[in-house]
Simulated assay, not measured.
Amino acid sequence: MDTQNLAAFVAAAEYGSFSRAAEALELTQPAVSKRISGLEDRIGARLFDRVGRRVALTEAGETLLPRARALLVMVDDTRRALDSLSHDVTGRLTLATSHHVGLHRLPAVLRAFTRHYPAAGLDLRFLDSEQAYQGVLDGALELAVVTLAPTPDPALSVVPVWVDDLRFVCGPEHPLAGAGRIDLATLGRHEGVLPGSRTFTRGLIEERFARAGVTPTIALATNYLETLKMMASIGLGWSVLPETLLDGTLHVIDVDEPPIRRPLGYLYHRSRTLSNAARAMIAELETVRTADTRT
Rank of each mutant, 00 (worst) to 15 (best):
M1Q: 04
A7H: 05
F9I: 07
A12T: 15
A13V: 06
A13Q: 03
A13R: 02
S17P: 01
A21H: 01
A22T: 07
E23A: 12
A24I: 05
L27R: 14
Q29N: 10
P30L: 08
V32N: 01
I36K: 03
G38D: 11
L39Q: 02
D41T: 12
I43V: 15
I43T: 06
R50S: 11
R54A: 13
T58C: 02
G61W: 00
A68H: 04
A68D: 03
V75G: 00
V75H: 12
V75L: 03
D77C: 10
R80S: 08
R80C: 01
D83Q: 14
L85Y: 10
H87L: 15
V89N: 10
T97L: 06
H99I: 15
V101Q: 03
R111H: 14
A112K: 14
A112T: 15
R115E: 15
Y117P: 00
A119Y: 04
D123N: 14
L124K: 07
F126G: 00
S129E: 04
Q134N: 12
E142R: 08
L143D: 05
A144P: 00
V145H: 10
V145Y: 15
V146H: 13
P150W: 09
P152H: 06
D153A: 10
D153G: 02
P154F: 01
V159E: 12
D164W: 07
D164L: 01
D165C: 01
C170D: 06
G171R: 05
P175S: 09
P175G: 07
L176K: 03
G180M: 07
I182D: 06
L184F: 08
T186N: 00
E191P: 00
L194N: 07
L194A: 11
G196Q: 12
R198Q: 12
T199M: 12
T199A: 09
T201K: 13
R202G: 02
R202H: 14
G203S: 11
I205M: 07
E207P: 01
E207Q: 15
R208T: 14
R211N: 08
G213V: 13
V214T: 09
L220Y: 14
Y224N: 14
E226S: 14
M231S: 05
W238F: 13
P242F: 02
P242T: 08
D254F: 07
D256R: 08
E257Y: 01
E257L: 12
P258S: 11
R261M: 08
P263G: 05
P263I: 06
G265M: 09
R270C: 04
R270D: 13
R270M: 06
S271Y: 04
L274T: 03
N276D: 12
N276F: 01
A277E: 02
I282P: 00
L285E: 03
L285H: 01
L285N: 03
L285K: 03
T290M: 12
R294N: 09
